[in-house]
Design a protein around this nucleic acid. Structure first.
Lengths: 176, 176
DNA sequence: GTCCCTGCAAACTATTTGCACCGGG
DNA sequence: CCCGGTGCAAATAGTTTGCAGGGAC
């Protein structure tokens, strides 16, 4: 459901191409590890943690270590293909650049469920505000923390495990 | 210039009162250290880091340690008088609750200058979006990263030291 | 007098770095 | 071949915690 036919491996190829172009331009090398990590990252589509990515990469190439994942993710961030997100306290999450440019986040404080949304109206207004201060906006983060429908249903208690239910809230969701 | 006569010690008293009320309600004690830290925190008005606060507190009461600052800030966060902000990578910054409820942030990626803004329109729209997903928003963070007027003026280069110039951008600014 | 609070230092967690060896171009 | 990349383990940075003694109520 999460990796359905939105735009599957279609533009993943394109992203990999951009990544390779960046490596070449910088005189850096394309290695098996970097490819696996980047590929898994682009394919994941949503929010991924270093740990997730390490696990995914190791599934395909068991020799990769933490450091390489960090280093590769830093490269991806440098060339604008990935963006760091620090939601709660815990781990840093990464998402693909396309996402970071066009989606804001709704985060459930009970269960950690993350949903992405987009509002042209907000986008426009924040541009207007920034301009009024003479700022030139490059990127932004907009996160709304609150209770998701399920957490509200069981008000007071903690949110039921979402893993089983899947992604029935209308958006692209993932858990921290 | 940064701690000018916006609203000096005026409502700081009120905030201290709220803090003490919380302590009492929880059966906790009011100590010299907590008072100094809270007072410095409220007086600072803008964004403060743990380090800043430790320095400020030590100026008045040299015996305070890191741990106490962390613990006190956690208390302040619990009772809603402080809010954590993680802008860039480095340290966590704290701001007073009033701010966190009503201000969003414009952050210069060149010089780290932080400016607060508020837009009812954005506020309203984000509420609407959240409701459409069944979310009940408790708090939010909204940060626009870009180039401040000065950084744009010296396009390409790095932003001039802001310390000297003070706060001429029309908002309440501070540096990380 | 009873707990809570404090400072110190050690513990922890997430991330980064040094180094010897491996591998891409 | 050369130089950058990799894995490992050690180092770091920010934050938390355990503990013995001090202070608020």
């Amino acid at each position: 459901m999460l990796e359905a036919d939105d735009s599957p491996a279609t533009n993943v190829d394109g992203l990999m191409g951009q990544f390779h172009a960046y490596l070449t331009k910088k005189g850096l090398k394309s290695t098996r590890q970097r490819d696996v990590i980047a590929l898994k990252f682009f394919s994941a589509g949503g929010h991924v943690s270093i740990e997730d990515l390490l696990a995914l990469a190791r599934a395909e190439y068991p020799r990769v270590g933490y450091a390489t994942v960090y280093r590769t993710l830093k490269l991806l961030t440098e060339c604008g293909l990935a963006a760091e997100r620090r939601f709660g306290e815990g781990h840093t999450m990464y998402e693909t650049a396309g996402d970071s440019a066009h989606h804001d986040h709704l985060i459930c404080v009970e269960c950690g469920f993350v949903l992405e949304f987009h509002s042209e109206e907000i986008e426009r207004e924040q541009e207007r505000v920034a301009r009024s201060f003479g700022f030139n906006v490059i990127r932004h983060r907009h996160e709304l923390y609150g209770l998701c429908p399920r957490a509200r249903g069981i008000k007071g208690g903690s949110c039921p495990r979402l893993e089983g239910g899947g992604d029935a809230d209308g958006g692209r969701g993932s858990r921290q």
